[in-house]
């Protein structure tokens, strides 16, 4: 394949990564922004979403789309409920202390991972995509008779991958609308800006925290349900999304949702392009290097406010 079509393919693959990554990272960013909790178990909520999707899709007979649709609804809700429980049982008890919550969520990470290993097992299992048509993509070539379209061999994408990108965009617009247009969004932002004043104006901060923790985990689970027809469910799959989400949240600016989305696009696309032309390992090395540079030269992140 020539360079042009090759690059287009890499960008499209990168866009799928970016779509899933932005959902996961926005979940992490919300939890950190509102609660000041560094949720190390975020990747495990992602993993649980994928594993539950496999389980739910398997429980439904009939057409693959039926099971997948059920998973898309039930898995994020179930994972969100689990996270709310974890918040009430663990994080609330330790008073949301920044250091203790890190240790507590590391513990939660291992509990979720090992329970999944003991129940679901070490295998990687696929979930059938609800639809998966191969769409050949055209490329422009300048011949003797001016520009002409042709369909290079190997340049294609599946309809499902396009749907993942579309779904992620729709969910992100939804999150943005909730945060800026609704009462619950206003309450969350007030809590984020000044916890004590939120209390002094009747906002039930602990309930907001539980809700945000559940919402963040549900976003990660939703991202995982979307990606599992492409990548398979496995009990150790939470590591990469956790690392990349942290990278994205730090680059975008802690607690800044627009920054998180922009950084997810940047990291997702560069990950796609660099993985195709060089190697996936190089992509991770460069992303981590970028985090180091951001921390040195712009510690508040690209979009973060200077003093929180």
């Amino acid at each position: 394949m020539e360079f042009g079509p090759h690059l287009m393919l890499a960008v499209l693959e990168g866009a799928v990564t970016a779509a899933v990554l932005s959902l996961t990272a926005v979940g992490l960013s919300l939890v950190f922004g509102v609660m000041r909790v560094v949720n190390v178990a975020h990747g495990e909520f992602f993993m649980l979403g994928a594993v539950l999707a496999w389980w739910i899709a398997g429980a439904f007979g009939g057409h693959a789309a039926l099971g997948f649709l059920a998973a898309l609804v039930v898995a994020p809700l179930a994972v969100g409920a689990m996270a709310v429980l974890a918040d009430i049982v663990i994080l609330k008890r330790i008073g949301y202390d920044p250091e203790r919550t890190i240790v507590a969520t590391i513990g939660l990470l291992y509990i979720l991972q090992q329970v999944t290993l003991m129940s679901y097992g070490p295998e990687a299992r696929p979930v059938a995509a609800p639809f998966n048509t191969r769409l050949a993509l055209p490329w422009v070539e300048w011949g003797e008779a001016g520009p002409a379209l042709y369909w290079p061999w190997g340049l294609s994408i599946t309809s499902y991958k396009l749907a993942v990108i579309g779904a992620a965009v729709a969910v992100l617009v939804g999150v943005w609308a909730v945060m800026t247009r609704t009462r619950i969004g206003l309450v969350m932002r007030a809590t984020q800006l000044d916890r004590d004043m939120a209390l002094a104006f009747g906002i039930p901060v602990e309930r907001v925290y539980a809700l945000v923790f559940g919402f963040g985990a549900a976003l990660a689970a939703l991202a995982a349900v979307l990606i599992v027809p492409i990548s398979q469910a496995h009990y150790l799959m939470g590591g990469d999304p956790l690392l990349l989400s942290f990278i994205v949240v730090i680059i975008g600016g802690l607690g800044s949702l627009p920054g998180t989305v922009v950084a997810a696009l940047l990291i997702g696309l560069s990950d796609g392009v660099i993985s195709v032309f060089f190697s996936p390992t190089l992509a991770k090395i460069l992303a981590t290097l970028l985090v180091a540079l951001v921390l040195v030269f712009r510690p508040q992140g690209l979009f973060g406010a200077r003093a929180a």
Binding site: L193, L199, A200, G202, P204
Partner: peptide, 23 residues
């Protein structure tokens, strides 16, 4: 609990104003 106290009817104007600055 602390968030029920303002609901009983106490308005608080704290030192340094402490508005929700970004709102």
């Amino acid at each position: 609990p602390p968030h029920e106290i303002p609901k009983a009817g106490i308005g608080y104007i704290p030192q340094g104003r402490r508005l929700f600055g970004e709102l």
